[in-house]
């Protein structure tokens, strides 16, 4: 029995380390978990993109499940994601609030004219200061916010159809059921 252990212990240790390292291969170091998940959305008040006299604030996130989508016209993968956002706004009737991050107003308006506008409203964060409060470090980023204004999930990188179906849609459904 003891000699068995002598032979198998190194093998067990090796398998343990191999599993550990193998798991490491599947983790994307570019996706840094956000400490904001589970916390109330950071407060902000920014001019609206189309109508600068209006203010978009975190009060607009209350009362219904929303997506807060951080985007910019200089962001290439935002373009890839845009089609999916259009579909979500159309088919799911989900409130998507945009945070137009470090962008030029005219570029952003042109983009929405050209590709369509999935956003209920857009906060215009020209200097990226609100982006810092939301811990934005790359676009696109999308926060799922419940009706009490608590951040429940952060998606880093574009929402693909697969990711929406696998992760985000079940979460949004669940949050809609919650009171």
């Amino acid at each position: 029995m003891k000699s068995y252990l002598r032979f198998f212990l190194p093998l067990l240790v090796f398998v343990g380390i191999a599993l550990f390292l193998f798991r490491g291969l599947a983790i994307d170091p570019r996706k840094v978990p956000s400490p904001l998940v589970g916390k109330p959305a950071p407060s902000f008040a920014l001019p609206e993109l189309r109508d600068p006299t209006r203010t978009v604030s975190n009060a607009d996130l209350l009362g219904q499940v929303s997506l807060l989508n951080v985007w910019a016209t200089w962001c290439v993968s935002c373009r890839a994601e845009h089609k999916e956002l259009m579909r979500l706004a159309r088919e799911d009737g989900l409130q998507i609030i945009g945070l137009n991050y470090k962008d030029e107003r005219n570029d952003a308006l042109q983009w929405l004219r050209q590709y369509g506008d999935p956003y209920r409203m857009n906060a215009f964060d020209q200097d990226g200061r609100v982006g810092i409060d939301w811990g934005v470090y790359g676009t696109p980023e999308t926060f799922v916010v419940d009706r009490k204004g608590i951040i429940r999930y952060k998606q880093i990188g574009p929402i693909s159809r697969e990711e929406w179906e696998a992760t985000l849609r079940p979460l949004v459904q669940q949050l809609k059921v919650e009171s």
């Binding site: 840094v32 400490p35 904001l36 810092i132 470090y137």
Partner: peptide, 8 residues
């Protein structure tokens, strides 16, 4: 910074 971006 940690409150926004985490320990990373």
């Amino acid at each position: 910074l940690v409150a926004r971006y985490g320990d990373f």
